[in-house]
Simulated assay, not measured.
Amino acid sequence: MRITLMDANFLKLGDESIMSDEKLLIVEDDMDIRELTALYFKKKGYDVWTAAEGYEALKLVKKEKPQLILLDVMLPGIEGFELCKKIRLYTDVPVLFLSSKRDPVDKVLGLEVGADDFITKPFDLMELEARVRANLRRNSMVLSEPNRKKRVFTYNHLVIDLDSYDVFVRGEKVSLYTKELQLLILLVENQNQVFSAEQLYDLIWGVDSFGDLKTVQVHVSNLRRKIEEDPSKPALIQTVRGFGYKFNVQKKIESH
């Protein structure tokens, strides 16, 4: 498997850093792809760690606490989808799958197990970097905005603590992946406003991401399964046919 960006071109880039203090974990069993990708991001100023298989990757996740993980699907030891589920037990940082699998079912499965993006091989390193930057930026913004502190939204069986970013359904804490949490917060803070799938994708994943609108559909479906009384008949996150989605309330939710 070859990366499409010409090796000679990026090796001539020099040591100019675009970002600093961002820790990246690359989990890839193909040595050429792993080393080439690591070298590219190191030249861009990232602190890069690598692993060739799943168990080694899990150790690095717990020890080094990377801020973003690039994860191959076909891995020895623990395959990528299962590894992603294990990673989510320890961290909510962005996980971007790198895979030669092109079947839409594989992409949906990747998103369902907690990935934030799914990139097919061969990939261009500059495009990959753009996705990495977008996910790091989005993750940083949603978890650090000061105007979201000390607020709790309560509506029927749903409680969202925007200080701790905890979500409770019928008094039980619910585990949400980062993008699911970002999506829920956006919809709750704009109650009854209809967002198209395109708008949600731009706001949550960023206009400089390169995915598709199926990503939004998968995350909405996952979120409904976790917070709705009856996910087959969603009362909170409703589909407005022909337009998009909205968080439906009869009376405006107030924070306290």
Rank of each mutant, 00 (worst) to 15 (best):
F10G: 01
E180L: 06
P122V: 01
Y155K: 13
V95P: 03
D29N: 15
A38H: 04
H219Y: 13
L162V: 00
Q199C: 02
H219A: 01
D47F: 04
G206H: 02
A197K: 12
Q182Y: 12
G80R: 08
V174Y: 01
Y177K: 02
I227V: 13
S196A: 10
R2P: 06
P66N: 05
A115L: 04
N139D: 15
V159T: 12
E64M: 14
D30L: 08
N9W: 13
D116L: 07
I26H: 03
G80W: 08
K43F: 08
R88I: 01
V188E: 09
D47Q: 12
G242S: 09
N139C: 14
T37M: 11
E189T: 06
V249S: 08
D230N: 15
F210E: 15
V95D: 09
K85Q: 15
S20D: 10
F168E: 11
A197T: 05
R224W: 03
V218K: 10
K150N: 14
V27L: 05
L98N: 10
A38V: 03
V218Q: 11
G54E: 03
E35A: 07
V218E: 14
K246D: 04
Y46C: 03
Y165I: 00
L128M: 07
L89S: 11
R88Y: 09
L184C: 07
G80N: 07
E189K: 10
K62Q: 10
L186E: 12
Q193A: 05
A38W: 02
P76W: 04
F168P: 01
I3H: 09
I227K: 01
D30R: 05
G211T: 04
V220G: 01
F10D: 10
D124F: 07
V216D: 06
G211M: 05
Q67D: 15
E254S: 14
V152K: 11
I69G: 05
D117I: 00
D30A: 06
K101H: 14
D161N: 14
L213W: 11
V108Y: 07
Q193S: 05
S20K: 10
L89F: 13
S164A: 11
S221A: 12
L200E: 02
L68E: 14
I33P: 05
V220C: 01
R151E: 14
K44T: 02
I69D: 07
K65W: 01
D32E: 15
L83Q: 09
V93W: 05
F195G: 03
R34C: 13
T50V: 06
L223H: 02
E145T: 00
V48R: 01
